[in-house]
């Protein structure tokens, strides 16, 4: 775990739940099924993959894979998945994707300071939602988050 003080929210009670984010070992990737985590994660072995777990537990509630591009002071988010039981009206926890994006933002800021940027290229229909929800900017089809908006996102998901 590189950074602490991040929380998700229990949907039924709105109670904040402390989480930890850990790097995923290559050998672990095959354990994340497409059924629960939407994608074939074993194909991400060349990239950095992180899992979000509730503090002192092991079950991954969300996964993110990223490509660090230092020459462009940027981290490109390749995949994000929230575990199946945390999607839809019956979801147990909220903010999993937001915390994972904030985590990528922290890594970018730690590495690149005021030049930090995260990017992702979602399908057209959700680009607008991401611009609204995370205050991302659009360049062509690519969404990005830069300073100062990147700081605001980190602060939104950071707690004392």
């Amino acid at each position: 775990m590189l950074f602490s003080n991040m929380r998700i929210v229990e949907a039924s009670t709105e109670k904040p739940i402390p989480v930890e984010i850990y790097p995923v070992e290559k050998s672990e990737l095959k354990l994340f099924s497409k059924k629960r985590y939407s994608f074939d994660w074993s194909s991400e072995s060349k990239f950095e993959v992180y899992k979000l777990v509730i503090s002192r537990t092991e079950d991954a509630l969300g996964l993110i894979s990223m490509d660090r591009i230092p020459q462009e002071w940027r981290i490109h988010i390749r995949l994000i998945a929230v575990s199946k039981e945390n999607l839809g009206s019956g979801k147990i926890y909220e903010n999993i994707a937001g915390v994972l994006i904030a985590y990528a933002s922290k890594i970018a800021l730690e590495d690149f300071g005021e030049h930090a940027c995260i990017s992702l290229k979602p399908k057209t229909q959700i680009a607008k939602l991401y611009m609204e929800k995370y205050n991302m900017k659009i360049t062509g089809m690519l969404l990005s988050l830069e300073v100062p908006e990147l700081l605001n996102l980190i602060n939104r998901y950071d707690y004392d």
Partner: peptide
């Protein structure tokens, strides 16, 4: 909706 919103394939 959540599936589309929170499962992003950006490769």
């Amino acid at each position: 909706n959540d599936y589309t919103l929170y499962n992003i394939d950006s490769r």
